[in-house]
């Protein structure tokens, strides 16, 4: 049986036994390359589920849809390892109770689909810990290496050019499972902490705020990068920050649901006198 078939059956069982009230997965998109998030509430609809290597978006953000988990019923969700990490971060930040989530795990290293064992976050701990070990080498972003070699001035120009395209839609924020605040700091106007306009200053402010606020929280799912309508390579910023946080604090976001958030912890013997 294909993994897709297997998971359709599993989804059917979960729904018909009443174990979950909804399955969040992927369905066919408007063309052959596209997949779209799908919300299934009855066993009969489970045949609409699609699973292949084109299912790349991280669906964990939908779990925080207002009211979804407030009845304490369970929801099943298709997740890649990044998605499971996202669940841990959200749980560590008290945004959801992982007991309410049934994971239908999969991955597609080198384009080949594979099922992942387990249905609760704890069962993925070994897998996630292994990711921590291999991440820096395998990330292999050529562009990142190029940027590292630049002088500070060149690097500034590179990002200035990229950020000049930003139209301040905040699609990057909306697509990110970690950006769950009902009222983001950039939407506050009394006082207005961050310029709302898409001029140079406003764009730098936003993108720097985003980078910092996601440091140690970003699970590198790539949702933001894919959502950006002007294709700013946001993943490079996330990658860089993830490396910094790993090297400085040995912190790999989303290893457990009780992990201490790196931005919210302070130690008296910290070698720095200021943040980060």
């Amino acid at each position: 049986m294909s993994i897709e078939q297997l998971y359709r059956t599993r989804a059917k069982e979960l729904l018909s036994s009443g174990e979950v009230k909804m399955v969040i997965g992927y369905g066919a998109g408007s063309n052959k390359e596209r997949r779209r998030p799908l919300f299934i509430t009855s066993a009969e609809e489970c045949d609409k589920l699609v699973l292949d290597s084109a299912c790349i978006s991280n669906l964990s953000g939908y779990l925080l849809t207002e009211g979804l988990l407030s009845d304490e019923k369970r929801v099943a969700v298709f997740l890649r390892p990044e998605g499971v990490r996202a669940l841990n971060v959200l749980a560590a930040e008290a945004q959801l109770d992982t007991a309410q989530i049934v994971i239908i795990g999969f991955d597609s290293p080198k384009g080949e689909l594979k099922a992942l064992e387990g249905s609760s976050v704890e069962e993925f701990t070994a897998l996630i810990t292994a990711l921590k070990e291999i991440t820096p080498e395998t990330a292999g972003e050529e562009q990142l290496a190029k940027i590292e070699k630049m002088s500070p001035e060149e690097r500034f120009l590179f990002w200035q050019e990229e950020f000049s395209k930003c139209i301040k839609c905040y699609a990057c924020r909306q697509a990110c499972p970690m950006c769950y605040c009902r009222r983001c700091i950039v939407d506050s106007n009394q006082p207005q902490w961050v310029n709302t306009s898409s001029h140079t200053l406003g764009n730098f402010e936003w993108n720097i705020v985003r980078a910092f606020h996601l440091s140690g929280r970003c699970v590198e799912c790539g949702n933001c990068d894919r959502a950006c309508p002007v294709n700013i390579p946001l993943r490079l910023i996330n990658r860089k920050m993830a490396e910094e946080v790993l090297n400085s604090f040995n912190h790999f976001a989303g290893t457990s649901k009780t992990q201490e958030p790196v931005l919210a912890s302070f130690k008296k013997d910290d070698s720095e006198t200021f943040i980060l």
């Binding site: 839609c169 207005q192 309508p229």
Partner: peptide, 25 residues
Amino acid sequence: SLRCIGCGSCTYLCPTCHCFDIQDE
């Protein structure tokens, strides 16, 4: 619209969407 994440890309890229906000910076 269940899957809409409210990202606004569709409106910002649209040639006819015309809504704006007045902000004092």
